[in-house]
Design a protein around this nucleic acid. Structure first.
Lengths: 188, 188
DNA sequence: GTCTATAGGAAGATAGAC
DNA sequence: GTCTATCTTCCTATAGAC
């Protein structure tokens, strides 16, 4: 030992992600990130030569590809719109740990970096999410405008339920929102 | 000069508030806060002996009393529920600068302070807001459970629309949400 | 690949003059 | 009440041994 990888890539990114989701970009000190990963600061720099900004970028990229794989791909898959939406709900529940973990898109959007290196990626993720959700609702028979509007409202309600859950110190709002979502989207 | 107050209380809190709303608690450095207010760090400490934490606390208190005065009191006032809601929408639009400024309740809820000195106040503000909104919807003829649920959803959508607006770099989601709100609340 | 040690700077906070 | 100057602590980042 001493020369081997002590923590695998996936777990490393996941632990870093937890920190950024809890305290945001500025709140995530290298001391916190090191503690969460079990690595020393210098080891983190070996893996991420550009430091904290690179860590946040890779964490955000990972979240984007996770969303693509576990949420968007299933939304585009074959099957009834209703069952595709049920699948999304299940994955969202897991991704946000039943409402206990905040969304990176919210926690990183205030990072005051020169020009904002996360801005573009955050926009892309939001856009992809709403696009895929719109497509399902189109399949379900909604017209283009209504589908887009309802997709946007869904993403906003998800974000809002996470903010509200965190602020109130309970996961109930998030859980109730997820529970009501399939019926909401089926309306009209 | 030199011994006089160069900035009045209200304006001071307002400028500090803008910084916390933009970059959150950890992102709000004393350098930023000093720049925004036109005061030097030492002057800020003269006014806020407990430093940044006190600044954030007073800013949050001010936001709470602003909400009470401009949003909750009008919600409780005499008049048709619909017109009281219209009044709230107008005030919300001003308070969030048409969607350009984030909500303190979101931006301060991740402040990683020993035990979280803001937690309690954030909960209280959310609770008061939803209570007042529920009461209006009760007046409008909704049953207790539905009124409460719709009030919560309104607050969540507001938060979500602000998060989404910031993430997408446009105020459109916030503005559209506000515009649709009166009709939404009138349903059923 | 991980570590200890440390540089260099920015952060929060204070002292004391005016 | 505001300022300049300074202190201390924490933070980001690097050097170099193993």
């Amino acid at each position: 030992m001493g020369r081997k990888t002590l923590i695998d890539e996936e777990e490393l990114i996941s632990r870093l992600s937890n920190v950024f989701r809890e305290v945001g970009y500025e709140g995530a000190t290298l001391a916190l990130l090191a503690e969460a990963t079990g690595l020393k600061k210098a080891s983190l720099y070996h893996r991420f030569p550009q430091g904290k900004e690179q860590m946040a970028r890779e964490v955000l990229e990972k979240a984007g590809s996770w969303l693509e794989e576990h949420i968007l791909a299933p939304l585009r898959a074959a099957g009834a719109p209703a069952s595709r939406i049920d699948a999304m709900v299940k994955q969202l529940d897991a991704f946000y740990s039943g409402g206990r973990q905040a969304c990176l898109l919210n926690m990183l959007s205030s990072a005051r970096i020169h020009g904002g290196p996360f801005t573009e990626m955050i926009e892309r993720v939001f856009e992809a999410w709403i696009g895929a959700l719109s497509a399902v609702l189109l399949d379900a028979g909604l017209d283009r405008k209504t589908a887009r509007s309802r997709a946007e409202r869904t993403v906003m309600m998800l974000q809002g339920s996470l903010v509200f859950s965190r602020g109130m110190g309970t996961t109930r709002p998030f859980r109730e929102f997820l529970k009501s979502l399939p019926a909401e989207l089926r309306k009209i």
